[in-house]
């Protein structure tokens, strides 16, 4: 892996940018690349060669760095989000799949799918701060808005593990449905959503009491029940709408944040897995692994407005405000 090149960079980049401008990064699992899309023109502006089998990608809170989990290279690559240069790598442990940053960006938590571990990486020093043993095949990673609680889901153990980020110890385990893939807190931290790909549900969890208070189910006429496989989950800042990617059902479900009833199913590309909002929350971007494209959903109108070809098997998506 190439190491730090960034020394004399980043001058002259302060050209005026329109309000609301943003850049979308999409990892292409099979293409070993990251596609860069201009959020306004919705055109691919760059394709960056990265490590093997890039899956989870995470943007630093300041938008300066993109962390790329190169699963088959057993490493986290650090990309300069402005210059698209690989700055270096972080020690991730084997087979990193999904990761999450603490709100201040100081700690990157990575799920090591093959090793039943969550690795905590100090992003400033580039060192491993802790390795936390969890269930079999850890995947989903969510952090509470105050940064105090990390939630990891383990796909074969079928649990959400609540980890105290101060002590890096598990404080509670909540049983959810089969093959939990993703964990997402609301912005006020009062609810946690955990999707279960094989169970076909999203568990709504009270993170204080560690209790499942509701399970969201899905039903689409003409689509076999087995194909309704929830993976990525995103919630609007006001908590009013929950978006759930339904994998091979090729749809994103729109769920009411209070009643937890599904309001609508939006047809996107094939095998939709991960989701990300634009900074102003007016668009939601989806990665469609089989059709090699991303779809853009207008969040107010609940319409799919665009699909854009990217690399082979798009997996993760992260967005940077420009």
């Amino acid at each position: 892996m190439r190491k730090l090149l960034a020394s004399a960079a980043l001058l002259g980049l302060a050209a005026p940018v329109p309000a609301g401008a943003y850049t979308v990064f999409v990892s292409n699992e099979r293409g070993n690349s990251v596609s860069v899309i201009d959020g306004e023109t919705m055109e691919v502006t760059d394709t960056i060669d990265v490590g093997q089998r890039p899956r989870g990608i995470i943007m630093s809170p300041d938008g300066a760095k993109l962390y790329i989990l190169a699963s088959d290279d057993d490493t986290v690559q650090v990309l300069d989000a402005a210059t698209h240069e690989i700055l270096g790598t972080l020690p991730s442990g084997p087979d990193p799949e999904l990761g999450v940053l603490t709100p201040d960006g100081s700690i990157l938590y990575v799920a090591n799918e093959d090793d039943n571990l969550v690795t905590a990486i100090d992003t400033a020093s580039g060192t491993v701060k802790a390795e936390i043993p969890v269930g079999i095949e850890p995947e989903g990673m969510g952090v509470s808005p105050d940064g105090k609680i990390l939630v990891n889901t383990s796909e074969t153990t079928n649990m959400a593990h609540f980890i105290d980020t101060g002590t890096d110890e598990i404080v509670a385990n909540v049983l959810v449905d089969q093959r939990p893939r993703f964990a997402q807190f609301t912005d006020d931290g009062r609810l946690l959503f955990v999707s279960a790909e094989i169970g076909g549900t999203v568990s709504v969890i009270d993170p204080e009491k560690h209790e499942v208070i509701h399970k969201i189910g899905f039903e689409v006429p003409g689509v076999p029940k087995e194909a309704l496989q929830p993976v990525g989950v995103r919630v609007t800042k006001d908590g009013k709408k929950i978006f759930v990617a339904l994998g091979p059902a090729n749809r994103v479900a729109v769920v009411d944040g209070e009643s937890f009833e599904v309001e609508e199913y939006l047809l996107v590309g094939q095998r939709v897995w991960q989701l990300a909002f634009s900074p102003d929350e007016k668009q939601l971007w989806t990665t469609n692994g089989i059709s090699n494209d991303v779809s853009v959903i207008d969040v107010d109108d609940l319409k799919v407005v665009k699909s854009i070809q990217v690399g082979e098997q798009p997996w993760g998506v992260a967005i940077r405000a420009d």
Partner: peptide, 10 residues
């Protein structure tokens, strides 16, 4: 019983 069997459906 909904067993995850690595075959894409329970």
């Amino acid at each position: 019983l909904q067993l995850a069997a690595f075959k894409g459906q329970p």
